[in-house]
Design a protein around this nucleic acid. Structure first.
Lengths: 338, 338
DNA sequence: CTTAGCAATCAATATTAATGAGTGCTAATA
DNA sequence: TATTAGCACTCATTAATATTGATTGCTAAG
């Protein structure tokens, strides 16, 4: 059957109404709020047709209609109006990033948090494949007699400082020369390359060998991180406010999903810009959807940011938020810094 | 009425049973599981007396007894058996801290997380009054042409790095001299003193004045942090598993409490080692308790760590965990580092 | 002081009935 | 052929009622 313009209009009406109220939409609702020119009987005929076509669903015989995942797909791809971010939303975003954020972990946390705050859903962010980050610079700074901090600057940002114990004899000057030398050797190599330092290893004079080994150790730590650790999730509790999760069973099911972030990993790593429905499987079925966008920093695709929520979401808003954040976060971090 | 030994034994039985099952405890339960030598009628008489004394409560006439907050207070102060941490629990703790944790924010996060993991409740940690931290050392490291990282070492740990923009003309050497000079001036002053630099300001030669100002700005940022920001909460979702929060209303009430951490601040800042009951007020009454212990690092009391959960908690375990973590976390961080 | 025995209480569960929102279908209309 | 009014039918939701069973408090005897 053909999807006429009128049918699309009705799908849109059902989604709009359902997004707002989370209640099945009746033919009378549609007539009252969206299409007064049609009779409820006509609308009912169309609704029945759309149900046959797989766009709508009926919880039970005497209930209104509810959009299916298919309807949402159509909606997001074709019907959805585009929306600009409001200035207050832009303000919120700026507020989150004007406090110097440079370290990658912080960046992810802030990203997920701000997404959650604006959408009132759970925000998610992750950095992909950190092993392919290109090293720009490495600094080793002695901060006490026996402790030094290692700062690793990559094309994606600064890695979280690690500390290493050093012997008291290693002077600040020595460590400085070491980091200068090592920076030169490592520069423009990826972390992964350094972790398998077969080719580079020979360039290292014995003098700096100990420091060299310590740094490789630190880098290996990043790469070996077990899956899921690089995924940050913020504002999960916001989902409790959604009527979809208003029974304790469904709420728990969602949180179980959050606990084992590894399960989310494959979903996140899949598509480019994506909508995914029905993350959680059968049983208690909280019926989640996840929307993600690529996250860019300094022109490099560093990972993804997204939203997890019920399938019934304010997609226009979410898409515009993710779009904006994905493209600007990186710039906010270094260029816009005043 | 006197609290006889037998009455104490019965209170303990009620708490033990209720802690395990979260069900009101009947006289028959007590006879069967704890005190077979007494008849249920005798136990009932005692239960009635304990109710009069304010130690027990009855949800309704035909229900068993439930301990009151008073009973828990008595339990924790007098009746509770002490418990050692199991070796698997010690292993978990070590695992969390053997990956170099030095920055204070990381330390708090790890502390709250590990507490949550071991107790299966929400873990909380906060650092008090960071303004009184004593500065040991300050380093400014140029990492790109126009960006530098500021590392501030205090007696409580390293503050999260901030970045500042620098002009290209400022050479690495210049910044190094600047940090050496400023370190000397700031050393052994508290952050708060530096933020009101009236007395110290004169010692600063014009040469380093710009760098000086930038650092003071960064320090002010820490001190001005609005209340609640320094409080870290982890594992809140664990509470969903507790039967006390098994209605969505109560679960939401708890999360609302979490959202506004400022409300927790006064509770946390109060006592030395503390038990606090009934954090949340009337209405939906999730009836939380919070148990806190002081957190020490390098011999300095840096803040608190604690647990938030239902009043019905495994206090012996919680007290031993907090005790251990409060005393050792600081050492794990710098001394035990291998 | 302790205990057996028993009536009384009351939450929890199951049962049944009443309500009403919303549909699908039929037949009339444009 | 597409639209619409009308009406019987369905079924979740709510309310009303009855049933069950766990547990107590009290009395009277040991």
């Amino acid at each position: 059957m053909k999807l006429t313009e009128r049918k699309e209009k009705i799908i849109q009406a059902v989604i709009d109404s359902y997004t707002e109220s989370c209640e099945p939409v009746s033919s009378a609702d549609i007539k009252a709020k969206y299409i007064p020119s049609l009779s409820t009987a006509t609308i009912r005929n169309e609704l029945a047709a759309l149900e046959d076509m797989g766009y709508l669903d009926q919880p039970h015989t005497s209930a209104g209609r509810v959009p299916t995942a298919n309807a949402y797909k159509l909606y997001v791809e074709k019907l959805m109006p585009r929306k600009e971010l409001s200035s207050s939303e832009l303000d919120i975003i700026k507020k989150y990033f004007n406090n110097t954020v440079l370290e990658i972990g912080d960046l992810l946390r802030s990203t997920a948090k701000v997404i959650s705050e604006i959408t009132n859903l759970a925000g998610i962010a992750y950095v992909k494949n950190i092993g392919s980050a290109i090293i720009k610079n490495i600094k080793i700074i002695k901060i006490t007699d026996t402790l030094a901090i290692i700062v690793i600057v990559t094309d994606r940002g600064v890695l979280k400082d690690s500390t290493v114990t050093v012997s008291e004899e290693m002077s600040e000057d020595y460590l400085r020369s070491a980091s200068e030398f090592i920076s030169k050797v490592f520069a423009n190599h990826t972390i992964l390359e350094i972790c398998n330092p077969d080719e580079i290893i020979n360039q290292i004079t014995n003098e700096f060998r100990m420091v060299f080994d310590a740094i490789v150790e630190v880098l290996k730590n990043y790469v070996s991180d077990d899956s899921g650790k690089e995924i940050v999730l913020e504002g999960g509790s916001k989902l409790l406010e959604q009527p979809e999760f208003s029974t304790i069973g469904k709420a728990r099911a969602v949180y179980e999903m959050f606990e084992s972030k590894e399960k989310l990993a494959p979903v996140l790593k899949n598509e480019d810009f994506g909508l995914t429905f029905n993350i959680t499987e059968d049983v208690n079925k909280p019926e989640c959807a996840i929307v993600t966008a690529n996250l860019e920093a300094h022109g490099v695709n560093i990972g993804k940011a997204g939203v997890i929520g019920p399938i019934r979401m304010d997609y226009p808003k979410i898409v515009s938020v993710l779009d904006y954040i994905g493209k600007t976060v990186g710039n906010l971090v270094d260029n816009d810094k005043k």
